[in-house]
Amino acid sequence: MSASACVPQFMLAGIAIGALSGCASAPMTRGGSLSSYERLKPSDGLLTKSLLHVDKEQVLAARSVRIWPTVFAPGASPQLSEEQRRLVANLIDRALCGGLSERLRIVGPDEPADLTTHVKVTQAAPTDEMAAGASKVASIVPSALGVRVPIPRIPIGLGSLTVESEAQDAAGHQLAAMVWARGANSFTNSPKVSAVSDPYDLGSSFATDFSQMLVTGTTPFGQPPRLPSLESIGTSLGGQPKYAACEAFGRDPGLVGMIAGNVGLPPEWSDKGAATNPP
């Protein structure tokens, strides 16, 4: 029996539509939080739009970094609850902590540091929960019927995220800056039944790109993939972070989060957020 005979016609139509248009757009919104926008230049990735600047020598000379808590611009995401915004902001900080730990020592908010990061979310379009639920059902049914057909996510109600960030030296001078925008797509962003699903996933992608820029001193786009260290793998599975200061952002949901995401559960169910009593 052919695959088309086993897969309902609406699923095949979803595949065709997804192949034609499977990515949400994200505006390059500026929130006015950067100390300067003058030296920003376009540096786009395959899925990401960005403007960035980095003083390579000075950034690579840094040995420590302080992560200032991520904030949302007023009106950046009216459809998301305050709890959901806190979840995204904390995820960004936690992911930054892990990524920057690859080269830099992470210090607490009251300790001196060579660099201080500042991050502001300027736009966060929510995920359509009904469309995400339908996508998850559409992806499960073929497997239940014994058919191995990849089912792209229905390209309706995809969320997006726009962030601006910078790293300053101890004197407050900008050494690196980035305006980053990306929309969820039908192929790499798994649908979860939550309005914050896509902004949450995209927050991790932003943190990976921004931390890589500060670790390498160059654009994160168009570069060969970097193999994660054993420490970062352990942290991503919910293990203890390399530096105690990262405990303030809580532990990664690890395998529990992966399993929950695979079945479409909201990230709010598995991510406990920031630590209640950080060290």
Rank of each mutant, 00 (worst) to 15 (best):
268 E>V: 08
225 P>Y: 11
117 T>S: 12
182 R>H: 15
171 A>T: 04
198 D>H: 00
129 E>V: 10
28 M>P: 15
238 G>L: 10
263 V>E: 02
224 P>M: 06
52 L>F: 06
158 L>I: 09
204 S>E: 13
160 S>D: 00
132 A>I: 05
10 F>L: 11
38 E>H: 14
112 P>N: 07
33 S>F: 12
236 S>T: 15
180 W>H: 04
121 V>S: 12
108 G>S: 04
30 R>K: 11
151 I>T: 02
85 R>P: 14
185 N>Q: 01
190 S>H: 15
43 S>I: 04
185 N>V: 03
21 S>M: 11
192 K>H: 11
153 R>I: 03
56 K>R: 11
188 T>E: 03
106 I>T: 09
221 F>K: 12
125 A>E: 05
226 R>V: 13
13 A>I: 07
132 A>G: 06
64 S>C: 04
147 V>H: 01
202 L>N: 02
250 G>P: 05
250 G>D: 10
70 T>M: 07
202 L>F: 06
101 S>T: 02
25 S>G: 13
214 L>R: 02
152 P>W: 01
153 R>H: 09
172 G>A: 03
52 L>P: 05
199 P>Y: 03
201 D>C: 11
151 I>H: 06
93 D>L: 02
177 A>W: 06
143 S>Y: 14
165 S>P: 02
156 I>V: 13
224 P>G: 04
244 A>E: 09
111 E>M: 15
73 A>K: 00
102 E>Q: 06
219 T>H: 04
107 V>Q: 06
140 I>E: 07
240 Q>H: 15
87 L>N: 13
111 E>C: 14
255 L>F: 10
97 C>F: 07
114 D>F: 07
156 I>E: 12
82 E>D: 14
253 P>K: 04
44 D>Y: 02
260 A>G: 05
163 V>I: 12
259 I>G: 06
82 E>S: 14
120 K>F: 09
244 A>I: 11
105 R>N: 07
